[in-house]
Amino acid sequence: MLWIVLAALVFFALAFFLMPYLPGARAYRDRQTRIKTYLRQESAIKQWRAPALARQYVQKLWPNCQTPHLDMMENLLRQFFMCNLQAESATLAIPSFALQHFWQGVILCGKAYAEFTGQAEHIADYRPLDAREYDPQAMQQNLLLCWQMACLQEGLDWRQPARLPALFGLDQKLGISNGWRYVCSNGYLQVWRAEVREWHILLPDRPPRLRKKD
């Protein structure tokens, strides 16, 4: 009987030490690491709250923006961060002039912003556009991906949505001067922005690749 117990102990000891070298063990560990990273980032984004300075910054630009409007901007910036999290290895263009400035207001709170981006593991890093690196085609692709992600989050068909996703309708809803305007029609996303005048972006049939938490 004793030899059976000893054999079992040897077997389990060998299994314990050899487990990391078994086929698929590294893939399993990598998958668990990705899941934990995703959940940490998701939690940081959901718990994030905009500092008061960001709200004051926006109100100086658009004095008519009241608390409900600022609450909407905060929620939509959080949604934009979630779109970035869920997009697999991609860069998204922010689709709202007002939201871009709200984000810049958040950055003014340097310490709080650094803590948040650290917790979100740089999903919420601000990427200012360098005019020397401006690439209209890349910008359109990044904007298009944001359109797809926003539609998916709100349960809309990105090819023929019943309405604009909230991220894309914000400027028009708030009546933002120099705001960006969008219309989805006949398989194209039409974009009006002061610096580019007008774009017509063909909407793809292929869905975007999503980052999965599992």
Rank of each mutant, 00 (worst) to 15 (best):
residue 41 Q to R: 14
residue 82 M to I: 11
residue 46 K to Y: 08
residue 95 P to E: 05
residue 27 A to W: 09
residue 154 E to A: 06
residue 10 V to N: 04
residue 89 S to P: 01
residue 171 D to F: 05
residue 200 H to A: 15
residue 41 Q to P: 06
residue 214 D to V: 12
residue 116 F to Y: 11
residue 154 E to T: 09
residue 146 C to T: 14
residue 44 A to D: 04
residue 72 M to P: 00
residue 36 K to A: 15
residue 80 F to S: 08
residue 35 I to D: 01
residue 21 Y to P: 00
residue 178 N to Q: 14
residue 129 L to F: 11
residue 28 Y to I: 12
residue 138 A to V: 14
residue 85 L to G: 09
residue 179 G to L: 10
residue 67 T to N: 12
residue 51 P to D: 03
residue 147 W to N: 03
residue 52 A to S: 13
residue 168 F to K: 02
residue 7 A to P: 03
residue 130 D to F: 07
residue 132 R to I: 09
residue 23 P to C: 04
residue 205 D to E: 15
residue 102 F to E: 08
residue 85 L to Q: 04
residue 45 I to K: 12
residue 158 W to R: 03
residue 175 G to N: 03
residue 113 Y to R: 02
residue 17 F to I: 08
residue 187 G to M: 00
residue 82 M to Y: 14
residue 12 F to G: 02
residue 184 C to W: 02
residue 108 L to D: 04
residue 8 A to P: 00
residue 159 R to I: 01
residue 29 R to W: 10
residue 72 M to R: 12
residue 189 L to S: 06
residue 210 L to S: 01
residue 178 N to R: 15
residue 173 K to I: 00
residue 192 W to D: 11
residue 208 P to Y: 02
residue 152 L to E: 05
residue 29 R to I: 01
residue 211 R to T: 10
residue 29 R to Q: 11
residue 53 L to S: 14
residue 167 L to W: 02
residue 30 D to W: 07
residue 130 D to Y: 04
residue 147 W to L: 06
residue 145 L to E: 01
residue 6 L to V: 09
